[in-house]
Computed example of a mutant assay.
Amino acid sequence: MAQNSVTPPSAGHSYVGMWVTADGHIRHNLLPNGRYDEARGNRESAYQGRYEIRGNHIDYWDDTGFTADGTFIDGVLHHAGMILYREK
């Protein structure tokens, strides 16, 4: 996929914001500029990169070259075997 094939989500996009696992260990901050910042435990910014959302599907491209994807189902993000909830 070309990097500029999709316009980054706006700040008002329903999926922009913080998503966390139930135990709070994994935290995905989906930024409105199409970038994400993932924290793991005490390690802030453990992974960073860009993301694109199409419908309820999200693709991630880590700055190190790692790729992943996920699906939003009923307001919950299912990603790489993890379940992340919208931070309130």
Rank of each mutant, 00 (worst) to 15 (best):
E44M: 13
M1H: 15
I53M: 04
R40T: 02
K88L: 04
D74N: 14
A68E: 10
G34F: 05
N33G: 01
R50F: 04
R27P: 01
Q48S: 05
K88S: 06
T64S: 15
S5V: 08
H28M: 09
A11N: 13
L31C: 06
D62H: 06
T21R: 04
F66S: 12
M82N: 05
N33S: 05
E52T: 08
S14C: 11
G12S: 12
R54E: 00
N33Q: 04
M82A: 03
Y51D: 00
V20I: 14
E38P: 01
V16R: 00
Q3C: 05
G24F: 02
Y47G: 07
N42D: 15
Y47F: 07
M82P: 02
M1C: 14
G65Q: 15
N29S: 08
G55D: 14
R50P: 01
E44I: 10
Q3D: 08
S10G: 12
R86D: 11
Y60W: 10
G12K: 13
T71S: 07
M1Y: 15
V6K: 04
E52K: 13
G34V: 08
G65P: 06
A46Y: 06
K88W: 02
D74G: 06
T67G: 13
A2C: 10
L77T: 01
G17Q: 03
H25F: 13
G12H: 12
H57E: 11
R50N: 07
T7L: 14
W19P: 00
I58R: 00
S45L: 01
R50Y: 05
R27D: 00
H13P: 11
D37P: 02
T7D: 03
R54T: 01
G12W: 07
G70C: 08
A46P: 05
Y51P: 00
H57P: 02
L84R: 02
A2W: 10
V76I: 15
G12C: 02
E44G: 05
A68D: 14
R86I: 08
A22H: 15
I58D: 01
S5R: 09
I73R: 03
G70F: 00
G70Q: 01
A80E: 14
G41N: 08
T7C: 02
I83F: 09
S14D: 11
I26N: 06
G24I: 11
I83S: 11
G81W: 02
G65K: 15
G81L: 03
E52V: 09
H79N: 08
E38W: 06
G24E: 05
A22N: 15
F66L: 14
Y85Q: 03
